[in-house]
Amino acid sequence: MSELVFQDLDTYRSQLAQALAEASRSLDWLDGDLAETGAQDAANAASVRTLLASSNLARVRLLLHSDAWFWRFCPRLIELQNIYGHAFEIRLLSEADADTAERFLLTDKSVVRRFHPDAARGEASSVGRTMAVCRQQFDLLWLRAEPPSEGRRLFI
């Protein structure tokens, strides 16, 4: 994939699924709550499981505005977080960053960007410059993010 512009939710979801399937080392996902992404689908969870099982160095980082939908509708991803807790982390955007409108899934091979949460318009790209900009934005937001309101069971 070099660069593909999309205008509808179905193409957005299919590009997300393709990026998840192609990821081999890392997955950084910035979204409102994952509700419109298809993250709860079995095929997408299987792609994340494949990534996490492929290497001890693989990592998944979810950065969300709100985690309520995730805890309610993504049991497969929650199971993966319980199994691969050392490599699967969730954080919530800080209040200072709550107005961040862009959503994206960044892997080691590509990025799928949605320009605004109210429109399905965006792009899927493997261009290095686009990926670098998203990486810089994600890392900055990640540093200021907070732990989720709910979390992993400690089994105490």
Score class of each variant (00 low, 15 high):
residue 2 S to K: 15
residue 5 V to R: 15
residue 5 V to T: 15
residue 5 V to A: 15
residue 7 Q to S: 15
residue 8 D to P: 11
residue 9 L to E: 14
residue 10 D to H: 13
residue 14 S to G: 04
residue 14 S to V: 11
residue 14 S to I: 07
residue 14 S to R: 15
residue 16 L to F: 13
residue 17 A to F: 02
residue 18 Q to Y: 13
residue 19 A to Y: 09
residue 19 A to S: 14
residue 20 L to M: 13
residue 20 L to P: 00
residue 22 E to V: 07
residue 22 E to N: 14
residue 22 E to L: 11
residue 23 A to Y: 06
residue 23 A to V: 03
residue 25 R to H: 12
residue 27 L to N: 04
residue 29 W to M: 07
residue 30 L to G: 10
residue 32 G to A: 10
residue 38 G to E: 02
residue 39 A to C: 05
residue 39 A to T: 02
residue 39 A to I: 02
residue 45 A to D: 05
residue 49 R to W: 08
residue 50 T to C: 03
residue 51 L to P: 04
residue 51 L to T: 05
residue 53 A to V: 02
residue 55 S to C: 08
residue 58 A to F: 02
residue 61 R to T: 03
residue 65 H to C: 04
residue 67 D to H: 03
residue 68 A to S: 10
residue 69 W to L: 05
residue 71 W to H: 06
residue 72 R to N: 08
residue 74 C to P: 01
residue 75 P to D: 02
residue 76 R to S: 08
residue 77 L to N: 12
residue 79 E to D: 12
residue 79 E to Y: 01
residue 80 L to F: 06
residue 80 L to I: 04
residue 84 Y to D: 04
residue 84 Y to S: 03
residue 85 G to K: 12
residue 86 H to Q: 14
residue 86 H to P: 01
residue 86 H to V: 07
residue 88 F to K: 10
residue 89 E to L: 05
residue 92 L to T: 04
residue 92 L to G: 01
residue 93 L to Y: 06
residue 93 L to F: 07
residue 93 L to S: 05
residue 96 A to W: 01
residue 97 D to F: 01
residue 99 D to T: 09
residue 100 T to A: 06
residue 102 E to V: 15
residue 103 R to Q: 15
residue 105 L to G: 04
residue 110 S to T: 04
residue 111 V to F: 02
residue 112 V to W: 08
residue 112 V to Y: 06
residue 112 V to A: 11
residue 113 R to V: 15
residue 113 R to W: 04
residue 113 R to Y: 06
residue 115 F to L: 14
residue 115 F to W: 13
residue 115 F to M: 12
residue 118 D to L: 11
residue 119 A to T: 13
residue 122 G to S: 11
residue 124 A to D: 07
residue 126 S to W: 00
residue 127 V to D: 14
residue 128 G to P: 01
residue 131 M to T: 05
residue 133 V to W: 02
residue 137 Q to K: 10
residue 137 Q to F: 00
residue 138 F to S: 05
residue 138 F to Y: 13
residue 138 F to C: 08
residue 139 D to T: 10
residue 140 L to G: 09
residue 141 L to V: 09
residue 141 L to Y: 06
residue 143 L to Y: 05
residue 144 R to H: 12
residue 144 R to K: 13
residue 146 E to W: 00
residue 147 P to Q: 00
residue 149 S to W: 01
residue 150 E to L: 11
residue 150 E to K: 10
residue 150 E to S: 09
residue 151 G to S: 02
residue 153 R to S: 14
residue 153 R to L: 09
residue 153 R to V: 08
residue 153 R to N: 12
residue 154 L to K: 05
residue 155 F to P: 00
residue 156 I to L: 07
